[in-house]
């Protein structure tokens, strides 16, 4: 099979080694554009001898090397089609929870699969949603079969303050990356829909 209908679920996967992003969050239309244009994941890399730490990686539209026209054009086409077909977008962290690489652990695959199943069968929308500070993401309070204490990422950290400091640090990286291609005003206007540092 290589042909199918229009997508109704759009899923962005990020393996966040900073352990900041929630395992799952629902995106608004503007956030969909912002996170699509950011194309974020993180890896771990050696910075000094013997020290390995998280390093962010951004690639516009999750494939910057293959974009021939301005990234906003792809983002607009994607969200235009999503509106036409009543599609939802979700941001999923397949990376670290309960702290960054070295402190926390990578989320287990069965939990991520249950999250994706809940998205695909719509049951995730039955949950209440809380607003995650800094990133302003809508995070479900519960997902069937998933330990609810991991859904709010700050919960699992040593303290909420430590999460907040790490979140602010990651937010800065998003903001800095976004400034590298906000060549047109439409893209620049999306900045406020990304993470905000107060």
């Amino acid at each position: 099979m290589s042909k199918a209908g229009h997508a109704t679920k759009v899923i962005f996967l990020s393996a966040d080694t900073f352990g900041v992003l929630p395992p799952v969050s629902r995106l608004t239309e503007e956030q969909t554009k912002y996170y699509f244009l950011s194309g974020y994941t993180a890896k771990v890399a050696g910075t000094e001898r013997g020290i390995v730490e998280p390093v962010p990686s951004f690639s516009a539209c999750f494939g910057a090397a293959f974009l021939l026209v301005d990234p906003i054009i792809y983002a607009n086409e994607l969200t235009r089609k999503m509106k036409m077909h009543d599609a939802e977008a979700w941001l999923i962290n397949t990376g670290w929870i309960r702290g960054p690489y070295g402190t926390g652990n990578r989320i287990d695959l069965p939990s991520t699969r249950r999250i994706i199943n809940a998205i695909l069968n719509d049951s995730i929308n039955d949950s209440d949603f809380i607003n995650l500070p800094v990133f302003n993401l809508a995070v479900p309070a519960s997902v069937e079969g998933v330990a609810s204490d991991i859904l709010d990422p700050a919960n699992g950290w040593e303290s909420r303050t430590k999460w907040h400091i790490a979140a602010t640090d990651l937010a800065l990286k998003f903001i800095n990356n976004f400034s590298k291609f906000t060549t047109n005003p439409e893209t620049a206007n999306l900045v406020e829909h990304g993470p905000v540092i107060s």
């Binding site: 209908g5 393996a15 974020y40 690639s59 539209c61 397949t94 695959l109 699969r113 994706i116 998205i119």
Partner: peptide
């Protein structure tokens, strides 16, 4: 006939999670 699309850079689970 419900379609889902998965975006992600390498190592994020695109292949693993779209295989269902």
């Amino acid at each position: 006939g419900d379609v889902a699309i998965f975006f992600g850079l390498s190592g994020t689970g695109k292949t693993t999670l779209s295989t269902d």
